[in-house]
Each structure stands twice: as C-alpha cells, then as structure tokens.
Design a protein around this nucleic acid. Structure first.
Lengths: 112, 112
DNA sequence: CTGGATCCCTATCGATACTG
DNA sequence: CAGTATCGATAGGGATCCAG
C-alpha cells in the first residue's frame, strides 16, 4: 500500500495525452457504455445520464478518431449504425480500472 | 491481454469524478512533480514545462482541496511553503500507472 | 433513428502586471 | 519566493431546430 513510485516523467506526459481524450466530459462514460455492449446511438445515450445527442455525436467522433471505437454502418433503410470498442479501447478501459478501485477506496469525497 | 471487462457502471462514474480533478490541464504533471519530490512552488513550476504561476496556484489549491497534496507553511522570514503528496495522492499516482503503460504500448500512432 | 447546424452562454486558460 | 489581480481570447457544452 505504501510502495515507492515507479512512475516516470515520461509516463506522466503520456497520461496527460490520454487525459486529453478520455478526461473530457462524458467520454469515459460513453467508452464504458460501448465497452459493456451498448451499440446503438440511442442506446448509448440512454445509458449515460444527462447526455445530449450533440455531445454524444462529438464524443463518438473523437473516440473514433482516437482509434478507441469503431463505427460500423450498415446501409439498410433506414441506415443502421453500431459502435464497438476496438482492441485499443478495451485495453484503455482495463487501464482505467485501478482508477475506479482507487476512487472506491477513498469514497466518499471529503471537501468540494 | 484480452481478458473480459470487470469494470462496472459504478466504477465509471467514479473514474469520471477523478477525471474532473486530475484530467485538467497541468494537474497530473503537477501531482507527479510533487510526488517525485518537488516541494517548493518555484521548483514545481520549473519542472512542469510551460506552466504559469497563475495556473500553478489554481491547481495547487484544487489538489489541496481534493486532499491529494498538503500545503505546509513554515512562518519563517520570508515564509517557507512546501507541498507534499498525501497518502491519497500517492495512491492516485499509483493508480495512474497503468494508464502510462497503456499509452506507452500504443504510442507510435495516436492520430490518424 | 442518427445525427448535422446554429445560437449563445459560460468556464477555462494564457498573458501581463503587481505585491508582502 | 510565492503568490494575486485583471483582462481578453477561446473552447466546452446546453438548447433547439432540422434533415436523410
């Protein structure tokens, strides 16, 4: 519980980079929803409480561009669109787990 | 490498909460700098490239309020101020490590 | 159903200058 | 040394309406 820090300056810069994508509002929630199997636009929106369609669109594009999810379009009528996490996205979710456990240990928050 | 997800919806909400603090610009860099032993204001500022004194002040207050660092004032003349990571802060840094490793694995080719 | 396009308010951040 | 104060630019994000 009280081991020394192995984290490097290098690593920190990388963490900051990741944060710029996944640290934005809604992003981690969306990524998780997709990771847990929500594939459809409306399904994702329903899972993440308070999320507007505009922000969902924006975030999905960002996640797609970051290579964290795939957008799969089937040209039926009307068009069917599904979202799936990539390998990369799954691994990110896994890398996020210690953070969830950390937050759990220290809950509830004191100040703020 | 390809284990299933154990992460829960609950956990995700917590991760988002953490992100609201540590996902902001400069924050993880500052936390790391302090974690690695930078104690003085100017020392921290020097460690984190491009960081203004204003933003450093703001972030230090946020980190302090979040219980991640301690601000220790010694009433000498002039006043001496030191910053230290709390137990909580150290554990957060440790929880951040997998993210650094993740970023390292996927580094060559983030955009596209 | 899956978004795109606007409008517009707000929070955030950088630069600069100043202080006990 | 360790901050404060002020200002202006810009990016984030909500509401609403519209389209294929």
């Amino acid at each position: 519980m009280t081991e020394p820090l192995h984290i490097s300056d290098e690593q920190c810069r990388r963490v900051s980079g990741i944060m710029e994508v996944v640290g934005r509002r809604w992003t981690s929630g969306i990524l998780l929803a997709v990771g847990l199997g929500a594939e459809r636009f409306s399904e994702i929106q329903h899972r993440v409480d308070g999320l507007s369609s505009r922000m969902l669109t924006v975030r999905l594009r960002e996640l797609e561009q970051a290579g964290l999810i795939d957008r799969i379009v089937t040209p039926t009528i009307p068009v069917s669109v599904r979202y799936r996490t990539t390998q990369r996205g799954l691994e990110l979710l896994r890398a996020l787990q210690p953070l969830g456990q950390y937050a759990h240990r220290w809950e509830p928050e004191p100040g703020r």
